[in-house]
Design a binder for these strands. Structure first.
Lengths: 214, 214
DNA sequence: TGAGTTATGATACAGATGTATCATAACTAG
DNA sequence: CTAGTTATGATACATCTGTATCATAACTCA
């Protein structure tokens, strides 16, 4: 058995190329050749490691999903256990806004895929339905716990608050990508939202070294 | 001067074809030929009336923007003058959700353009920045008026509430398009939001024959 | 060292796509 | 009726794109 090369590594490199192309020139600029060039490999290699464009695109989507899950898991792990509801929620919104360049590219490409999935049922709708639903459930749990502990403002419904928070955050992310809002403007709206969700009492005790909402 | 044909009508027909193609097969399926076929005209005519694909795409975007403005103006005109803040806001969210098939196509294509605009500065960012900003200003005015009349819940900031409402609505629309939420689920979240925005008091006095939030 | 397998290069090809060109039909004005 | 202009058809072309093919380099193992 000859010339063993790490397939996963090669594939990862190519997928990174794809994401860079899609992030800079749009997902319509993703071609076998543009990805190959961006990744610094030959067209043949993209074919070799992904066979077809459809599979390449699919693989990139799965990879984005995986990365996103990993980042979120790592973020959660960095919180004190168990995290306070407010810390949990702030970590969530901080992760969900396109704050730095990497994050911007990630959200841009992810959104591009989401739009593709709207007309292409082949392109797994799982990531765009199950993913948010799972996050929403996590948020529901945390908010219910907060409510039981009397940390939420009165008259709120945990389930609906989770949906509202998730959707609002996502909408703000989009408006940042599109250039309608700056990240800090979006952050301001979210801080306002959280201040009304939790009582105006417990504001932002930074629980991690990373940038917290402020 | 011979064979006078109504250019605007021809252009409109072609643009309708474009929107149908983009709505059914995605904006990447929009080609000179697919649009021509969908509109029932020859490739040559698409060239003749729009010269280049870039101009065709641009024209379609401007047309979508115009339609949207007209629908909103007509909707406002149907409200009692001056409309109550709650009626105004409910008309807004009702217009902003992809409820029927036409609306679904409109929002889908609009969102597709928005994603394109994220990487293509040529594609006027005006519609995606100025448009929402203008809507947001309208909402701010209405909410300030409501606040002055004591119709809003206490402790709210009209400006931030406008941003929150706009973004939340948009985010819910996206989640509907993607199939994560049904329209009625989205409506439920919005009703909840509005009930907390206005005091839990004045619920939905239907002010138009059209479907109101309920 | 040699045989066999993996990884990669070079190249070809068919189909699609945007655009250009040439011709001519359809029509109006004088 | 005819000349001239607009509107449309037919077709061609270069480029891009996904995919396939053939060759061979690179390497491992016996």
């Amino acid at each position: 058995m000859p010339k063993i090369v790490d397939h996963e590594q090669r594939r990862a490199r190519i997928l990174e190329g794809l994401v860079r192309v899609a992030g800079r020139r749009g997902i319509h600029a993703v071609t076998m050749r543009s990805v190959a060039t961006e990744a610094g490999v030959s067209l043949r290699l993209v074919q070799y490691y992904f066979q077809t464009k459809a599979r390449l695109m699919h693989a990139a989507l799965l990879d984005l999903e995986r990365q996103s899950h990993e980042r979120w898991a790592a973020r959660l792990a960095r919180l004190p256990q168990p995290p306070s509801p407010r810390a949990f929620v702030e970590a969530f919104v901080d992760e969900a806004l396109p704050s730095d360049e990497d994050s911007r590219v990630f959200h841009l490409v992810w959104t591009s895929y989401a739009v593709l999935a709207m007309t292409d049922p082949e392109l797994a709708e799982q990531p765009f339905v199950d993913g948010p639903n799972q996050l929403e459930r996590q948020l529901v749990d945390v908010l219910k716990r907060a409510q039981a502990d009397g940390l939420l403002a009165g008259g709120l419904d945990a389930r609906l608050e989770a949906a509202r928070l998730l959707t609002l955050t996502h909408g703000l992310g989009t408006s940042v990508l599109i250039g309608q809002r700056t990240v800090s403007a979006a952050t301001r709206v979210l801080r306002y939202h959280l201040d009304h969700l939790f009582g105006r009492s417990d504001r932002a005790q930074p629980t991690t070294a990373s940038t917290s909402i402020s």
